[in-house]
C-alpha cells in the first residue's frame, strides 16, 4: 500500500474532521444551520460504533479459537466463552427474525438470559472485591514510612466516617470523612483533572497537526 493511502489520506481526514469540529464547537452558535450541519458528522459515530462492535466480535472469536487450537492457558474457559457468545447471538438473531424483538432487549428469552444469568454473574464477580480488600488490608498496609502512615490513617478515618458505625462510635467521624472528601481530596483531584485536560489538549493538537502519528500504527 502506498504511503499516500497509508499515511497522507488518514492524516488529511483527521485534520479536516478535527478542525471542522473545533470550529463548530467554538465559533458556530448553537441552533445555526452551519452548526446543525456538523451534527451529521457526529451521527456517523453510530455507524463506526456498530462496525467496531462487529470487529470486536470477530477479534474475540479469533483470539479464543486460536487459544483452543493451541491448547493455550485456560483454553477450557475459551470454549465456554465461544459457546456463550454463539448461543446469545443466536438468541438475539432469533428474536429479530421472529419479530418478537421490536427493540433492543424485547425478546423474552434474550432478556431472561441477561437478567437472570449475566446480571448475577457480573454482580458476583464485582462483589468478590470485598474479600480481596480484606485480605489485602492484612497483607499490604504497613506503617513503613510517613507517606504510608498518612495513607493508612486517612483510609481508616474514611472507613469509619463513611459507614453508619462510625457515627455511633463518635459523631465526629462522618464530619472528618466529609472534610477529607471535600477539601484535600477535591484539591488533589482538581490538580489531576486539570493536568489530564492540559495533556489531552496537547495530544489533540499534535494529532490534528499530524505531529503525533502513533494511532496510525508503525511507520514502515
Amino acid at each position: 500500500m502506498s504511503l499516500v493511502v497509508k499515511r497522507y489520506i488518514p492524516l488529511a481526514i483527521t485534520f479536516i474532521m478535527g478542525f471542522i469540529m473545533v470550529i463548530a464547537t467554538y465559533f458556530l452558535a448553537p441552533g445555526t444551520p452551519a452548526r446543525d450541519a456538523t451534527a451529521l458528522l457526529t451521527a456517523t459515530v453510530d455507524v463506526l460504533v456498530v462496525t467496531a462492535g462487529a470487529i470486536g466480535l470477530v477479534a474475540l472469536l479469533r483470539h479464543h479459537l486460536m487459544n483452543i487450537n493451541k491448547r493455550g492457558r485456560f483454553w477450557q474457559y475459551s470454549t465456554i466463552t465461544i459457546i456463550a457468545v454463539i448461543i446469545y447471538l443466536i438468541i438475539g438473531l432469533y428474536g429479530v427474525a421472529t419479530h418478537e424483538q421490536r427493540y433492543m432487549y424485547a425478546s423474552e428469552l434474550f432478556s431472561w438470559v441477561y437478567s437472570n444469568i449475566y446480571v448475577h454473574m457480573d454482580m458476583t464477580i464485582f462483589s468478590l472485591l470485598a474479600f480481596f480488600i480484606a485480605s489485602a488490608a492484612y497483607r499490604a498496609f504497613r506503617l513503613r514510612s510517613l507517606e504510608a502512615s498518612v495513607l493508612l490513617i486517612v483510609g481508616s478515618l474514611m472507613l469509619l466516617g463513611r459507614a453508619p458505625i462510625g457515627g455511633v462510635i463518635w459523631e465526629g467521624f462522618p464530619a472528618i470523612a466529609e472534610w477529607l472528601l471535600t477539601v484535600p481530596n477535591a484539591a488533589g483531584n482538581r490538580a489531576i483533572t486539570i493536568g489530564i485536560a492540559i495533556g489531552a489538549i496537547s495530544l489533540a493538537i499534535r494529532q490534528l497537526l499530524g505531529v503525533e502519528r502513533g494511532y496510525l500504527g508503525p511507520e514502515r
Binding site: A137, Y138, R142, S156, L159, A163, P164, G166
Partner: peptide
C-alpha cells in the same frame, strides 16, 4: 446492607491493625 458494610469496615481496620502488629 449498611450494617454489613459497617461490620466489614471495622473488620478491615482490625485486619490492618493485626497485620501491622504481626509485622
Amino acid at each position: 446492607g449498611l450494617d454489613a458494610q459497617s461490620v466489614a469496615h471495622i473488620l478491615v481496620i482490625l485486619f490492618v491493625v493485626i497485620g501491622n502488629i504481626t509485622w
